[in-house]
Design a protein around this nucleic acid. Structure first.
Lengths: 367, 367
DNA sequence: CTGTTAGCGCGTTCAT
DNA sequence: ATGAACGCGCTAACAG
């Protein structure tokens, strides 16, 4: 009677109880490690469980407790080094307390984000961490949905205006500003920004770009603001020709165009790994080299940045820590913490290497 | 009666039924999209569900159906670009058929692998994809465990001797062999391998290394075999001094030592991104450059390999496809396919760029 | 300390 | 076509 027709089968508490010669509840108590049982029956249950290779059915347990020990994570792309790093931090923190994380990629598409949310709700996750592509308050009905069901949500890497939730983010604006200030301190005044806010047509003015910027992902928008602020503070007027506005797929070409300007940039701030790679490709295609012709700073440090020749100066984001902090925040909420939402801004680290040259007393490169 | 004390609450089928004025079963039928219901009641149920923002409880559903629509993935490290890429392929394939994937990292530690397996069993996943660190047949009791419970398992990136299961792997041996042959065709005979099999003490002979190699991860071991085979086929005797044997953390130093040998290598095959980065670092520290002093080929193409100066020749692994294939294999098993296990070997692509120089008519570099 | 009982939300008979 | 009743495996509440 202890095996069934199907080959896939696991013993249940009832069967362990029978094998041990005790009641179902006693077996459940020892197996679930709650209540109290006599040492003798406890031992017998354990032995029976061992013999039958008993494993609890998590679904059934969650069914009655209402707890799945699972948190859901919604992000743009798990294969992106940044999110992969964050995910590792989340998974490690979860594992330490017997939680599990489920990651879902959206490619920054709102509909995908919506259905990812549905999946997580259906799976009854205890909490959700989300790097949302939403920029406007009316894009967040799916987040509100989870909240309405009592599922805590924390925002990762990006905040959303008008949505007051725990958020764990990077100090994007300040990081970009510092990078630009570093360029300026080294005598640069023609400083390019990639990737800039996306605009279908060539923007007429910086104001146009600033308007477009309102529609960018929060993190991207902040970096652009930091760039503009640093420029203005130094009395340098931002110009549209030094900010890419095309889709990312052609951004490398956009950079190429800049490089062929009559008055080309002497420095480029790349806001992502891919932007940096694109910029390097543009340099190569135009037979230019760094930091001689153009100085470079990029976001997201990578192991290879240090072995480039010369090594790249980068803004390192503590990805794993971002994940850890977000997990701790959501866990606190799951435990019932009801304090006001806090925004956790994690500082980046500017790693100065060899991709910025001092042009204070150098003449512009001849054309 | 339709709300409870707790704020977290979702309506159930019963409540939707009540709201629609029909029986529980009728509501369940329309919501679950099975059986047959009259168009009129169907409409009313749908309206009620919409109004109440009904969402099915996946746990309860899985409880009765025995299907979770979830597959578990056990891998070394989700933040490793290779596994992150594979994971993306898995997640995408899953999403297309309304499945969800759960990824667990083990850092190649067998105990972590064991407990990851327990988590997946407890969560009642329908199938498991695993890149196991197991090398010996008695390390796989946890895999056997899942199998015994009727959960299909497919091996990813590595096969395990003595375990006959569907496997989706890369043609490691052939890939390494081709790289070495490429070096040889370009006149190289002093060809180094990193990372080689780990050995606590300096190995006395290639035979020692070959013995150690039996304890390496399957993928690593295969690459080493390919290296040895290519050498022997060309009549070049493999030597221990050109194979790293230390732990990965000091492998860059090991490469440095090689470079300072009286008769240093003129080429290096790096079996991982990290190995390539380590080798590049060693070159820099020894004031050497590629491909002038040393030629280079590495496993795992990355975007940055193409913007290095000169660009790196790499062996590209189709990571996403690896994930997709593995998912399809496990899905087939979940559906009940019971054919004999197949090993799916996916070819790599050798991308020739500029990191290998022709030394057929060149004298060795002076020291 | 222990056993019995009642749900959790859903899918599924079985009658009607 | 529809509703009532049962059970999945477990925890929780209740008696003893």
């Amino acid at each position: 009677m202890s095996d069934r027709s199907r080959s896939n089968w696991s013993p249940t508490v009832a069967e362990v109880a029978a094998e041990a010669g005790v009641g179902k509840a006693t077996a459940a108590r020892t197996l679930g490690n709650y209540g109290s049982v006599s040492p003798s029956s406890r031992a017998r249950v354990l032995a029976a469980a061992e013999k039958l290779r008993y494993r609890p059915n998590g679904l059934a347990r969650s069914m009655t407790t209402g707890i799945t020990q699972t948190i859901g994570v919604i992000l743009a792309d798990i294969s992106n080094p940044f999110f992969a790093g964050v995910m590792r931090g989340i998974a490690d923190t979860c594992e330490a307390i017997d939680y599990t994380a489920i990651a879902l990629s959206t490619d920054e598409r709102l509909p995908a984000e919506r259905s990812a949310m549905d999946v997580l709700i259906d799976k009854q996750v205890d909490g959700i961490i989300i790097a949302s592509a939403a920029v406007r308050a009316d894009d967040v009905s799916h987040i509100q949905d989870a909240l309405d069901r009592g599922i805590p949500v924390v925002l990762l890497d990006r905040t959303i205006r008008g949505l007051s939730l725990d958020s764990v983010i990077i100090d994007n604006r300040e990081s970009a500003r510092r990078a630009v200030e570093h360029f300026i301190a080294n005598g640069h005044r023609r400083i390019a920004f990639t990737w800039g806010p996306r605009s279908a047509t060539r923007p007429d003015s910086i104001k146009d770009l600033l308007d477009m910027n309102e529609l960018s992902l929060w993190s991207d928008a902040e970096r652009f603001r930091g760039y503009i602020e640093a420029l203005e503070q130094a009395g340098i007027e931002p110009v549209t020709e030094l900010v890419t506005h095309g889709p990312r797929s052609v951004a490398a070409q956009d950079v190429g165009e800049m490089l062929r300007l009559v008055d080309p940039p002497t420095a480029v701030l790349a806001t992502e790994t891919e932007a940096m790679v694109g910029t390097l490709r543009a340099l190569r295609l135009n037979k230019l080299s760094y930091p001689r012709d153009v100085s470079l700073i990029g976001f997201d440090d990578s192991p290879w940045a240090d072995v480039m020749d010369p090594p790249l100066s980068m803004i390192a984001q503590p990805m794993a820590q971002l994940g850890r902090d977000a997990t701790e925040r959501v866990l606190r909420r799951i435990e019932g913490f009801a304090g006001v939402p806090v925004v956790d801004t994690i500082p980046t680290q500017f790693i100065e290497r060899g991709s910025v040259s001092d042009v204070t007393q150098r003449t512009p490169r001849p054309r």
